[in-house]
C-alpha cells in the first residue's frame, strides 16, 4: 500500500503524497522531538523534511525504502533546524511526558532531569544516532543508512554519546551514595 502511494506520488499525485505523509508523520515527529528536544522545532523539521521529500521523490529508486530515505532527509532537517534556531541554545525545557508510552516508572524525576541535561550537552549528530539506535531499535548499519554517515562514525558517535549519558548517571549515583554515607 505504501509503495503504491510512493509510486503515485512520484508521478506527481499530491493526494497520494498527502496520504503517505499521514502514514509516516507521527513517527517522523517522534524522531525529531527526541533529537531536537523541542516540539515546535521538531514540527518545523518534519514539515521541511516532507516538503523536501516531495520535491526529491523522483530520485528515490526503490519505493519500498521510502521511510528510511525520508528519515535521512529528516535527520538533515533536524540538523538544519538546530543550526538555524538560536533558541535551541536556551536553557533546558523539560519535555511533556504524555505520549503513547507515557512516563516510565523506572525513571525517577531526578533521572529524567539528569538525562535531559546530559542529552542537551550532546551534539545534534550524537543525539540522532542515539535516537535511531535506542528509540527505533535500528542496527548500526541501518542507523548509518538513515543518517547518511559511515558505520564507523555511527559507532564512534554512539560510543561517545552513551558514555556521556552513563557518566552523568554514574556521577549522580556517586553523589547520592556519598550523601547517604554522610547522613548514616
Amino acid at each position: 500500500m505504501q509503495e503504491e502511494l510512493v509510486r503515485q506520488a512520484q508521478r506527481g499525485d499530491a493526494e497520494a503524497f498527502d496520504a503517505l505523509a499521514r502514514q509516516v508523520g507521527d513517527r517522523c515527529l517522534a524522531i525529531a522531538v527526541r533529537i531536537l528536544r523541542d516540539v515546535d522545532l521538531a514540527e518545523d523539521a518534519v514539515q521541511a523534511a516532507l516538503i523536501t521529500a516531495w520535491t526529491e521523490l523522483r530520485a528515490l529508486r526503490d519505493p519500498s525504502r521510502f521511510e528510511p530515505w525520508l528519515h535521512r532527509i529528516l535527520s538533515r532537517a533536524c540538523f538544519a533546524e538546530a543550526r538555524r534556531r538560536t533558541r535551541w541554545y536556551e536553557g533546558p525545557r523539560i519535555l511533556p511526558v504524555e505520549g503513547a508510552y507515557g512516563p516510565d516508572e523506572y525513571l525517577t524525576v531526578d533521572d529524567r532531569d539528569l538525562l535531559e541535561r546530559a542529552f542537551r550537552r550532546l551534539t545534534i549528530q550524537q543525539r540522532a544516532v542515539l535516537v535511531f539506535h535506542h528509540y527505533l531499535g535500528l542496527s548500526i548499519s541501518e542507523v548509518a543508512t538513515r543518517t547518511g554517515i559511515p558505520v564507523g562514525t555511527v559507532k564512534s558517535r554512539l560510543h561517545h554519546a552513551t558514555r556521556a549519558l552513563r557518566a552523568s548517571l554514574d556521577a549522580d549515583a556517586r553523589a547520592s551514595a556519598h550523601t547517604q554515607e554522610r547522613m548514616a
Partner: peptide
C-alpha cells in the same frame, strides 16, 4: 534508563 528516557515524548504530528 537511556531507552526509557528516549521513549518518552510527543509522537503525534
Amino acid at each position: 534508563l537511556i531507552r526509557a528516557f528516549l521513549l518518552e515524548g510527543e509522537d503525534v504530528l
